[in-house]
Design a protein around this nucleic acid. Structure first.
Length: 547
RNA sequence: GCCCCCAUCGUCUAGUGGCCUAGGAUAUCAGGUUCUCAUCCUGGAGACAGGGGUUCGACUCCCCUUGGGGGUACCA
């Protein structure tokens, strides 16, 4: 086990934490914990155009939900702060000046349009684009002059061209890049902020990071970063790089945040009749904005997307960590599942607790090939974790779930919720628990009847007639006990020479409005005699005329 | 276009030249349990991308083809 391991997760605060980011954070965290080292959270907010003010907080909230704690970070502090790159500009400037002085970097004045033209030319010649370095580097006076003339002033790093750059990667071995493939890249933008490729190198060194575990999408910036590191800190050993496989979506390509809006757009287009005004209102956007979204020109913010999906009753694919929370997954499930995407303990273990993961995790068992995010398997994992987690923890998870989805079930006290949880053994998600017991917390006259259920169970056959008999038998009972209800229903079924379902289902639809609920005996007992009878009466009155 | 990475059941994966008649999980199929939804039990089917080498022997090593993915920004 290596000593003094320091890892970091360095998200750019552009929105919610998505599964890919969460997996990167998790691997860094697991490795730091396994080695007894330090895990740093660093916010890479050097792009002022893209950052949203609340995103950093959202990312931190999501990490906390997963149980990933950082030892150093924006709120936690630490000896290597600040941990927001936007607050480290002075540090970066110092190193950029040094490179400039040493002629290892130089000023450039091209506009975006000019650079685009160079790139097009390179492509036309079937070559990769490489910025042509000037023979003599412009001095600071020239930079001042260009600035005064209104030209953009950037700084590029002069990538050493003597020999190929070889990256030693923990998962991929030696990866060689020809020197002329690595173009002199910009390290300071015309707005004065450093680019990712520069800030990242400086910070990783200053924060004493020993292991850089990140997605394969960064493999191509690594030779540049490595060359920069060696120019800046020739005496410091390079960090260990580990480029993990990418998690791909079942729709092909990288698992991306765009999938949710895309799925919603598809659902809107597929819908037969649709009230666009109502939809826009539900999403809290204008009709014009909605129209523009449907035509694929713009994309509203995620909360608006979510609201519209809810309005239409369509389930969007979960991408962000919060999406999984809202779908009723446990953090334990997510951690376990994500850890197994591109890593495995080497034996047949799959369902694992965090401590077990920490105790087994090793960089040497990282997988090379990309993996597809399989939601079916996730559900199976969730079922297992719901079964395994302690009653106390599960109660806590359920309560925070009910709160965020604003379920009527929030009114239940801990005792009732615990009872319900026990009755829901085998549930796959917290959403399922909620779905099966929500009816207990809805007013008698606010029951929503599911069309299909009503047709199939009440209107077809003698459902209503049976319900009438059940009503009288229930009314005749002094006290509703589970045993009593069971005896009564089973007796009735036997008497009528039918299965229990024939008598239980009409009763279920009458009290829940749907065919899905807790076991029927428990459902009736928990609802109570008075409510049960009232709901049966409501149902009889409402549908008797429709036969 | 150019650069880089990858390749075992549908999916996640075990496999480091003979332990492979290729193991597990999930999904799927058949059957069973069941008042709904789930759970649960039993059983089945299901993979080394193709072609060349190397070797006594290749899923394992090398090369090519094909396929997939990533990158190609004054984004990170």
């Amino acid at each position: 086990m290596p000593e003094n391991v320091v890892t970091r997760f360095a998200p750019s605060p552009t929105g919610y934490l998505h599964v890919g980011g969460a997996r990167t954070a998790l691997f860094n965290w697991l490795w730091a914990r396994r080695a007894g080292g330090t895990f740093i959270l660093r916010i890479e907010d050097t792009d002022q155009k893209r950052n949203t003010p609340t995103a950093a907080q959202q990312v931190m909230d999501d990490l906390k939900w997963l149980g990933i704690q950082w030892d150093e970070g924006p709120d936690a502090g630490g000896p290597n702060g600040p941990y927001l790159q936007s607050q480290r500009k002075d540090i970066y400037d110092k190193y950029i000046e040094k490179l400039l002085d040493e002629k290892k970097a130089y000023y450039c004045f091209e506009t975006t349009e000019e650079l685009d033209a160079f790139r097009k030319e390179a492509e036309a010649q079937k070559k990769s684009f490489s910025y042509s370095r000037p023979k003599d580097f412009p001095d600071s006076e020239a930079a001042e002059k260009a600035r005064a003339e209104g030209r953009p002033v950037t700084v590029r790093f002069a990538v050493p061209q003597e020999k190929p750059i070889v990256v030693q990667d923990v998962v991929r071995g030696e990866v060689t890049f020809a020197a002329d493939e690595i173009s002199d890249f910009i390290i300071r933008k015309s707005d004065g902020f450093p680019t990712y490729n520069f800030a990242c190198v400086v910070d990783d060194h200053l924060m004493k990071v020993t292991h850089i575990i990140r997605g394969q999408e960064h493999l191509n910036n690594t030779p540049g970063q490595q060359a920069l590191w060696q120019a800046l800190f020739p005496d410091a050993p390079l960090p260990k790089y580990a480029h993990m496989s990418v998690t791909v979506s079942d729709t092909g390509g990288k698992l991306s945040k765009r999938e949710r809006p895309k799925a919603l757009r598809k659902a809107i287009k597929a819908a037969q009749q649709i009230d666009l005004e109502a939809l826009a209102a539900a999403g809290d956007i204008s009709s014009e904005q909605l129209d523009s979204f449907i035509r694929g020109k713009t994309t509203p913010d995620m909360p608006n997307i979510d609201a519209m999906a809810k309005h239409l009753g369509v389930a969007l694919p979960e991408i962000n960590i919060v999406d999984f929370f809202k779908s009723g997954y446990l953090p334990e499930t997510m951690v376990n599942f994500l850890a197994l995407l591109g890593w495995n303990p080497g034996d047949n273990r799959e369902i694992m607790q965090v401590d077990e993961l920490i105790g087994t995790f090793d960089l040497s068992r990282l997988t090379k090939s990309n993996s597809l995010f399989d939601r079916q398997k996730l559900i199976a994992f969730n079922t297992e974790h719901i079964r395994m987690v302690s009653a106390e923890k599960l109660l806590g998870h359920l309560k925070s779930y009910l709160n965020t989805v604003e379920s009527p079930m929030v009114s239940a006290d801990d005792e009732l919720l615990s009872t319900i949880i026990k009755l829901c053994e085998g549930a796959r998600t917290l959403a399922q628990i909620e779905q099966k017991s929500e009816f207990l917390f809805v007013d008698n006259d606010k029951i929503k009847y599911d069309d299909k259920a009503v047709k199939k169970v009440l209107l077809k056959g003698d459902g209503l007639a049976v319900l009438g008999i059940v009503r009288e038998k229930l009314a005749a009972m002094d006290e509703l006990t589970e045993q009593g209800i069971e005896d009564m229903l089973r007796g009735l079924a036997e008497e009528k020479q039918v299965g229990l379902g024939k008598v239980a289902q009409p009763l279920r639809v009458a009290i829940c409005g749907t065919t899905i609920s807790l076991q029927i005996f428990d459902s009736v007992r928990l609802l109570g005699k008075e409510n049960t009878l009232a709901r049966i009466d409501n149902t009889l009155k409402k549908f008797q005329t429709q036969i």
